[in-house]
């Protein structure tokens, strides 16, 4: 009668057992905000949902060996309210804050956002900008890989069948780094991203750019740091002219990676403006 069952796991090992029972199509369930939409159109999407959202170790946000580790079932609200994340990754705080509204942020999880890997997922550009990695448990053992490699293309990841994303982690940026995230939607809340940009930057003592990372979202099929843009910035002194050059290079990367689409005519100038703006936020101009 029921098209699937839902079982709450209380530990990671129990979850792994439940996820790997032979003969059943099982899926991990965290915030449910994506899965409920799938089930609405296909109630037979799976046989079993394993609710991992209340497993304490999957909700932890902590610092270990210079990395911030965020349990996969931590909600967007928990991430954005974490003092540790606020201190080390404003870009991720802003990205989580831009997701949906309170209701979605109370249920939706960072891990779910990564595993679902929607083209417009707000957390992905921020995580990739932070050089974040995934920690995955499979029946064969644990493994880790960068988020940028884990997410292969929209709605596709390298999560093995029967595997569970345990956590996301990022190295704490060097002191003096700034990061930011900008989102453009068609309204001011509950908006799907038209474009997002995440950036991280640091200046050296003589005011030149020592570190630069730039990632765009909803712009390219795969999300990655734009090395060509970052190289252009490194070693230079921040200036509006430089930001505009970098913004144009960002647009060129978008076109190289995704080709021209119906929306390109709009996204070219809009992404250029957003990129110049975010660079201005992470690289403060020396007082003129």
């Amino acid at each position: 009668m029921e098209s699937f069952e839902t079982i709450r796991a209380t530990s990671v090992s129990e979850a792994m057992t439940l996820l790997n029972e032979p003969g059943l199509r099982s899926r991990a369930l965290a915030g449910a905000t994506d899965i409920m939409l799938l089930l609405r159109h296909d109630p037979h999407y799976c046989d079993r949902l394993v609710d991992i959202s209340l497993i304490p170790e999957l909700r932890k946000i902590e610092e270990q060996n210079g990395r911030v580790i965020i349990g996969a079932a931590a909600t967007f609200n928990e991430v954005m309210e974490s003092p540790l994340v606020q201190q080390t990754a404003p870009a991720l705080v802003q990205a989580c804050h831009s997701v949906g509204a309170v209701q979605i942020r109370n249920m939706g999880t960072l891990g779910g956002n990564v595993v679902n890997a929607a083209a417009c997922a707000d957390s992905l550009p921020a995580l990739i900008c932070l050089d974040a990695s995934t920690s995955i448990l499979t029946p064969a053992g644990g493994q880790s890989m960068p988020v940028s490699r884990f997410v292969t293309r929209p709605n596709h990841t390298l999560l093995p069948s029967g595997g569970l994303l345990l956590s996301l982690s990022y190295p704490i940026p060097a002191s003096g780094s700034r990061s930011a995230f900008l989102k453009l939607g068609r309204r001011n809340a509950m908006a799907i991203s038209r474009l997002t940009v995440a950036a991280l930057g640091r200046l050296n003592d003589d005011g030149r750019i020592a570190e630069a990372r730039l990632v765009t979202g909803s712009a390219t099929p795969s999300i990655e740091r734009l090395a060509a843009v970052e190289e252009l910035l490194l070693g230079e002194a921040p200036s509006d002219l430089l930001f505009n050059l970098a913004a144009r290079a960002t647009v060129a990367e978008m076109l190289r990676l995704s080709g021209r689409r119906w929306s390109s005519e709009y996204k070219i100038p809009a992404l250029e403006a957003m990129t110049a703006r975010i660079l201005g936020q992470v690289f403060p101009l020396a007082a003129a």
Binding site: I7, M36, L49, G100, A101, I104, M107
Partner: peptide, 23 residues
């Protein structure tokens, strides 16, 4: 999960009850 008319508090947190499995 777009309109909020089904909002309830689950363990004190505001959620859309259409986006939460009863289980």
């Amino acid at each position: 999960g777009e309109c909020g008319a089904c909002s309830v508090l689950l363990d004190g947190k505001l959620v859309n009850s259409c986006m939460v499995l009863a289980a």
